[in-house]
Simulated scan of single mutants.
Amino acid sequence: MEFKNVKVIKKANVYFDGRVDSRTIIFEDGSRKTLGFMQKGEYEFGTAAPEVMEVLGGEMLIKRAQDSGFIKIKEGESFSVEGDSSFKVVVNDYADYCCSYK
């Protein structure tokens, strides 16, 4: 996949002592995405706006408020998260991802 005519924020967003990082991409229409990488670990993220997370490499286990247990999301799959919520992620090896904000 390739993005054209975008602005990239060079400075990384770094979380969890450097185990998760991402870069923000802003499109001509003002929409944004982040491209990121998660190392092995357990994380909990909060959301302000609804988002869709695509797994580009590796895999993760996720648990949103509406999930009764963890769900495996593999390379090529995606999931949605409601705004003003949170979700848990477990990464056993690594996860390369793209997050789209609505």
Rank of each mutant, 00 (worst) to 15 (best):
E2M: 05
E2K: 09
E2H: 12
F3E: 08
F3T: 13
K4I: 00
N5D: 07
V6P: 06
V6I: 11
V8R: 13
I9F: 11
K10A: 08
K10E: 10
N13A: 10
Y15P: 01
D17E: 09
G18M: 01
R19F: 09
V20G: 02
D21K: 12
D21Y: 11
S22Q: 00
R23W: 03
F27P: 03
E28G: 09
E28P: 10
E28S: 11
E28F: 08
D29K: 10
S31W: 00
R32H: 13
R32C: 10
K33T: 15
K33H: 12
K33V: 14
L35R: 07
G36M: 04
M38F: 07
M38R: 02
M38G: 04
Q39K: 15
Q39I: 09
E42T: 15
E44P: 02
F45K: 06
A48C: 11
A48Q: 11
A49T: 13
P50L: 11
V52T: 15
M53I: 12
E54P: 06
V55S: 09
V55R: 11
V55N: 07
L56M: 06
L56D: 00
G57Q: 02
G57V: 01
G58F: 00
E59K: 12
M60H: 08
M60G: 07
L61D: 10
I62E: 01
I62C: 10
A65M: 14
A65Q: 15
Q66M: 11
Q66D: 15
Q66E: 15
D67E: 03
S68Y: 06
G69Y: 04
G69L: 01
I71A: 05
K72I: 14
K72D: 05
K72E: 08
I73P: 00
K74A: 08
G76V: 02
E77M: 07
F79V: 01
F79N: 04
S80C: 12
S80N: 14
S80K: 11
V81D: 07
V81L: 10
V81F: 06
E82H: 10
D84E: 15
S86T: 11
F87E: 03
K88N: 10
K88E: 03
V89N: 02
V89W: 05
V89H: 06
V90F: 01
V90P: 00
V91Y: 00
V91D: 01
N92P: 07
N92E: 12
Y94L: 07
A95F: 04
Y97I: 08
Y97K: 05
C98W: 03
C98T: 06
S100A: 11
S100G: 08
K102W: 08
